[in-house]
Nucleic acid binder design. Sequence first.
DNA 1: CTGAAAGCGCTTACAG
DNA 2: CTGAAAGCGCTTACAG
Lengths: 337, 337
Amino acid sequence: MNRVTSLDIADLAGVSQSTVSRALRESPLVNPQTRRKIQLIARQQNYKVDSSASNLRSQHSRTIAMLVHQESEMDSDINPFFVSMLASITRAAAARNYDVLLSFQQLSENWIVDYQNSNKAEGIILLGYGGYTDYIRKVELLDGDHVLTWGPVIEGQPGHFIGCDNRQGGYIATRHLLRLGHREIAFLGDISDDCPEMQDRYLGYCRALHKAGIREKPALQATAAPAERSGYLAARELLRRDVAFSAAFCSSDLGALGAVNALREGGLSVPGDVSVVGFDDIPAASYATPALTTVRQDTAGAGKIMVDALLQLVAGEATRSQLIEPELIIRASCRPR
Amino acid sequence: MNRVTSLDIADLAGVSQSTVSRALRESPLVNPQTRRKIQLIARQQNYKVDSSASNLRSQHSRTIAMLVHQESEMDSDINPFFVSMLASITRAAAARNYDVLLSFQQLSENWIVDYQNSNKAEGIILLGYGGYTDYIRKVELLDGDHVLTWGPVIEGQPGHFIGCDNRQGGYIATRHLLRLGHREIAFLGDISDDCPEMQDRYLGYCRALHKAGIREKPALQATAAPAERSGYLAARELLRRDVAFSAAFCSSDLGALGAVNALREGGLSVPGDVSVVGFDDIPAASYATPALTTVRQDTAGAGKIMVDALLQLVAGEATRSQLIEPELIIRASCRPR
DNA sequence: CTGAAAGCGCTTACAG
DNA sequence: CTGAAAGCGCTTACAG
């Protein structure tokens, strides 16, 4: 049994191969009756247009590549936030009739050449970029390529980024704690230049504090990456410092979950002794004990926006950077002072 | 600036286009010096073989499709276990120089036609199949197609499956609880024919009980799907029945996390009053409070095995069904009776 | 509205 | 070891 081609369908339908091709692409040129007949026969024969041939001829692949950054080969835990993004991007792409190639890569590898120059994908979405300073250096060389990154949206930066309004996110998280009467609020997160997103959350935190007439204290900030272990260690460090705090804003849910464990180990109850707010609203946030109050990033909406923005880049249109609005999700990990 | 093709590389290297093609495919026919020269020029020009053209000519795509089953469009929480599988499959495929197309699909959609007949993918890996009875009916029509499913490995079933030795998993989980002195051990999971994997875990549970001279009690079994909410409801149901138990084996970690919450709400401490064992070893299991004792399915190994098995199918070779060995991971959610 | 024909950029038998 | 040539299965201008 040989592969069915458009020529076979043409024979069965008694038309030319060109007409088959047109009918299957919903060309308005072809007679509606003929089109229906051809489509019926194609379905009966389980015929599908050969994508290699179609791609080669038409010079586009209707495929995007989604690269998830990983520091090392071995680290197989993907941040659940990225999993949500990945799912929502894949669905948004499918809705636009695009396929998605998935890959886990390190920054050092040359994905542009691999995916774009081989015509495997028309554009690339990057989830997680590792260190910002290294990444931006790489992006500068990309001029004209179709690469969109989930990350910080910074005035004048090269490349194309879409991300959450992190400053606003940090602001509403901290304001929530302030309104509950907390004054000594710790910040767990990396505020170095390598993490502009967390830095922005920190700036939002500071702004909320200032509005309440409070100055931020370096002793209340502890560096943490978005990982459970990292949040755990940061909270321990904070406890060791022996500085008073009745609340903590963690710049990731994963970090917040770790911090909660560390606080408990230190004999503190959450939210009894310390209120905790996270960031991301990963699934685990809602079924943790206590369920985590957090700042949700709308991944479903973000996926659509990213796919649309990438396809604009591909089409050569201008894309403006867009900020996703964060939303405070109140659960059980905070209590009035 | 036009697209660089193999003809351009040929011109630059002073050889024919055929030789460029051979050199880039590491053909032993071409002179090593010529090959190196061509490869160098190709790299300098950022040239990559056009995959559409290559696929069309050679009639294979070096791509596999990975379909993650979803009941509904809206349900965006992917079981973290599948996330690990997805990552490990993608890595295993990359190691064999295969690309991975990702898609979220419902059982009703016709993925065989979409991916295989269009030559988009040489084979398909399915993660999550929904109801087994419906799925197996679909698989029966697949004869000759290259579809591999993560699921139950059952003697004589149609199609190609790779999965965990669930019976053994259920056995070692239950044996662990028995060795801790528990006698009244609840089972949370779906034991209907639609879930042969959980059914097998239940059979392993029964076997362990029998070996200890205990008969399983229907009152100690509550139906739960692998989801937090479902485990929560099942545990509540169990508490309502007013049957004594000092331990529970939950056939998924997600369900176990929900069950722990329900038990706590019911005034019981874990592991103080009830010991709990889960299944899967998802990341959340290790950072839950208490950290969950569970049965690990080796996803990294499973990914490699699945990709290899699928590529065997594609090559027309026989694949034998394979069972992944489960492993008990002891953490903090169990205590001696 | 339809058909004949060119050609996308490769791979690979064939001839040397 | 190398080159000239055919052809993979489509899409799409061109002509009618």
